[in-house]
Amino acid sequence: TFEVERIVRKKIVHGNTSYLVKWKNYSSKDNTWETEDDIRTKYGDLVDDFEK
C-alpha cells in the first residue's frame, strides 16, 4: 500500500487540479501527479495543510 509523505506542488490544467505527491519510503524521482479528488478522498488533511 502506498502512503503519501507530503504534497510537493500543485498544478491546474483546464480547470482540473492535480498535486505532485511524494510517497513515503520512495525517492523523489518516484513522485507522481494525482488528481485532487483521488488525494482528497484519503488524504484531505494533507491537501488542506498544503493549501494554507
Rank of each mutant, 00 (worst) to 15 (best):
V4R: 01
K42Q: 10
K11S: 07
S28H: 14
K11F: 06
V21F: 00
T17N: 05
T1M: 13
R6K: 14
S28L: 07
T41Q: 14
L46F: 06
S28E: 15
K22G: 03
D45L: 09
S18W: 15
Y26D: 09
D38T: 11
E36T: 03
R6V: 12
E51R: 03
E36G: 07
F50T: 01
N25R: 06
I7E: 03
E5C: 06
I39D: 01
K29P: 06
L20V: 01
E34M: 15
D45W: 13
D45G: 10
T35D: 12
L46C: 04
N16T: 14
D49T: 10
T35W: 11
R9C: 15
S27K: 10
G15R: 03
G44T: 09
K42S: 08
W23H: 03
N16K: 15
E3L: 07
E36R: 05
V13H: 10
K22I: 05
T32A: 03
K10C: 07
Y26G: 12
N25G: 15
V4P: 13
D45I: 10
T1P: 14
D37N: 11
S27A: 08
N25V: 04
K29H: 10
N16S: 12
W23D: 00
V8Y: 02
T1N: 14
K24H: 06
Y19H: 00
K22A: 06
V13R: 10
L46V: 06
I12V: 13
K10P: 00
H14A: 13
K29M: 12
G44W: 12
S18G: 02
D45Q: 12
S18P: 04
D37F: 12
K24I: 05
I12K: 07
H14N: 15
E51P: 02
E51V: 04
H14W: 07
N25C: 07
K52G: 08
T41M: 12
H14I: 04
S27P: 15
K22Q: 11
D38L: 13
E51Y: 05
D30R: 14
R9K: 13
K29T: 13
T35A: 13
K42C: 12
T35S: 13
K29D: 12
D30A: 15
T32W: 00
Y26I: 14
V47A: 07
I39M: 15
V21H: 00
I7F: 00
V13G: 03
K24A: 08
K24S: 05
F50N: 03
D48R: 12
I12G: 05
D37W: 11
V4C: 07
H14D: 15
V47Q: 03
E5K: 01
T41Y: 11
R40S: 05
T41C: 10
N25A: 07
I12F: 07
W33F: 02
T17P: 05
E34T: 05
F2Y: 13
E5I: 05
N16A: 12
K10V: 06
W33C: 05
I39F: 07
T32Q: 02
R6S: 11
V8F: 04
T17Y: 04
L20K: 02
K52T: 10
N25I: 06
H14T: 06
L46E: 03
Y19D: 00
L20W: 08
V47I: 13
R6E: 10
V21K: 00
T32N: 02
K29F: 09
H14S: 11
S28I: 09
V4I: 14
E5Y: 04
D30G: 10
D30T: 07
S18D: 02
G15K: 06
D37R: 09
V47C: 04
L46N: 02
V13F: 10
E5S: 03
R9L: 11
D48V: 07
V8W: 03
Y26E: 07
D48W: 07
L20C: 11
K29L: 11
K42N: 11
S27F: 05
I7Q: 02
F2K: 15
W33T: 01
D37L: 12
L46K: 08
T32R: 03
D30I: 08
V47K: 02
Y26F: 14
W33N: 00
E3V: 10
D30Q: 13
I39S: 03
V13K: 08
R40G: 04
R40V: 07
E36W: 06
D37C: 09
E51A: 04
V47W: 08
E51M: 05
T17Q: 03
K42I: 10
S27D: 13
V47M: 07
K10R: 08
V8L: 14
I39H: 01
D48N: 14
F2L: 14
E5H: 04
Y26W: 13
G15P: 00
K52V: 08
V21M: 02
N31Y: 15
F50P: 02
D45C: 08
D37P: 08
R9S: 13
I12S: 08
D37I: 10
T35P: 12
Y43K: 02
G44K: 13
K24Q: 08
Y43A: 12
F50I: 02
V47Y: 06
D48T: 08
T35E: 11
D37A: 15
T17M: 05
R9D: 15
D30H: 15
N31A: 10
G15Y: 03
W33Y: 04
Y43M: 03
N25Q: 08
T32K: 03
K24E: 03
V47L: 14
L20S: 01
E5N: 02
K22M: 05
K24N: 04
N16Q: 15
Y26A: 14
T1I: 13
Y43R: 05
V13C: 11
E3Y: 08
I7V: 06
T41P: 11
D45K: 13
W33R: 00
Y19A: 00
D48K: 09
T35R: 15
D38P: 03
D45H: 14
K52E: 09
D30C: 15
Y43S: 04
T41N: 11
L46T: 06
V47E: 02
K29E: 12
Y43W: 15
K29G: 08
E3Q: 13
W23K: 02
K11P: 01
D48C: 06
F50W: 10
S28D: 14
Y19N: 00
D49V: 10
T32D: 00
T41H: 11
Y19T: 01
T17A: 10
K22D: 01
K10A: 04
K52H: 10
T41F: 12
R40P: 02
K11H: 06
K11N: 04
F2W: 14
V13E: 12
N25H: 11
Y19E: 00
K22T: 04
Y43D: 04
V8C: 11
K29N: 10
L46M: 13
N16E: 13
D38Y: 14
K42R: 11
V13I: 10
L20A: 00
S28T: 12
L20P: 01
E34W: 10
Y26S: 14
R9I: 06
D37M: 13
L46H: 05
K11G: 05
V4T: 01
I7S: 00
V13M: 12
F50Q: 03
H14Q: 14
D37H: 13
E3A: 06
E51C: 06
E34A: 06
N25F: 09
V8P: 08
D37V: 11
L20D: 02
D49K: 09
K24M: 08
K10G: 03
K52D: 09
E51I: 05
N31G: 05
V47N: 02
V4W: 01
R6Q: 14
I39W: 01
D37E: 14
W33V: 00
E5A: 04
K24C: 08
S18C: 15
